[in-house]
Design a protein around this nucleic acid. Structure first.
Length: 286
DNA sequence: CGGAGTGTTAGTCG
DNA sequence: CCGACTAACACTCC
């Protein structure tokens, strides 16, 4: 599930709950989900306080007060769920089946316990996600080749156009490349192309300056809306406050194949691009 | 039951 | 450079 807006939502939800909390215990039940030697991982986390929680692209990371950083990538099905000592929940990630709301469950691979008795569960059904403890240098290294944050004011239409002209790749695939722009995945790349009236297979360098500008504005608008709506819930995702990400109501193409285009009414089409599904309108997107 | 498809991304091959 | 394809994995849907 998580693209930029979903990771941002998790960050905002967790922010007031875990900043200034001290981690007093860590349990790891699936070693491959941590990308460090276990000893090193534990030694530098247990007994340490969380100073900040931040996001870069789809990475969520905790800044610890010993100078290290704990980086999470949720990939397809990762979740970060906070449970207070009294039992209420926060956080989110991939949809939670009713019977898996019990925590820990069979997908709880790493569990952090705080000094106030609350716990943070890193769950991942498909096990593609990971968590890695890094120092500042390694953190910079990890993020060095990631492209600009799409919501950064510094990413202007001129800069976006300058990036586009260097690329012949299909525009929709390009939007999903993390070293081009950060945090955009299949849902929001599809939506941005529809919003801008641009066919997903158009070569990036074939976009006119006005098309590029429109595409960037669309992307920013959609991402901001998605954050406001607390992300997209593809299945019956319920976040842990018992609230649902509302963004799926606002999607115009993703998941709507064969349904009428909301601009012109003809049925939306589907195609495969780079092994990913793209839904689009053959009439409105040129 | 089998096969295709799923929010990601690193990597290979031609 | 670029697109196609695979692999990592568990589960749902048809």
């Amino acid at each position: 599930m998580p693209e930029l807006p979903e990771v941002e939502t998790i960050k905002l939800d967790l922010y007031k709950l875990i900043v200034n909390r001290k981690i007093v215990a860590v349990e790891v039940s699936l070693l491959k989900q941590i990308k460090n030697p276990l000893k090193y991982f534990l030694k530098n986390i247990v007994g340490v306080k969380i100073k900040q929680i931040k996001r870069r692209a789809k990475n969520l990371f905790l800044e610890l007060d010993n100078g290290y950083f704990l980086v999470f990538h949720l990939k397809m099905t990762g979740q970060l769920i906070y449970r207070s000592k009294k039992g209420w929940l926060a956080g989110g990630g991939h949809s939670i089946r009713q019977d898996l709301k019990k925590l820990p469950n069979k997908y709880s691979h790493v569990i952090f316990t705080f000094e106030n008795g609350a716990r943070l569960f890193f769950n991942d059904m498909r096990q593609f996600g990971w968590v890695k403890l890094v120092d500042k240098k390694e953190l910079e290294q990890m993020f060095k080749k990631i492209g600009p944050e799409p919501l950064d004011k510094g990413l202007t239409a001129d800069k976006f156009m300058a990036l586009l002209v260097k690329k012949k790749t299909a525009i929709k695939s390009l939007l999903m490349e993390q070293d081009f722009v950060a945090g955009v995945g299949n849902i929001y790349a599809s939506e941005a192309c529809f919003c801008a009236g641009i066919a997903p297979i158009r070569q990036a360098n074939s976009l006119s300056p006005s098309e590029a500008k429109k595409l960037l504005l669309c992307l920013k608008k959609i991402l901001r809306l998605a954050i406001e709506k607390k992300g997209t819930s593809v299945v019956d995702y319920v976040d842990a406050f018992g609230e649902r990400g509302q963004m799926s109501r606002f999607l115009k193409v993703y998941g709507r194949v064969s349904q009428p285009c909301l601009k012109c009414g003809i049925p939306l089409k589907i195609m495969r691009q780079a092994q990913r599904t793209t839904v689009f309108c053959s009439h409105c997107q040129k």
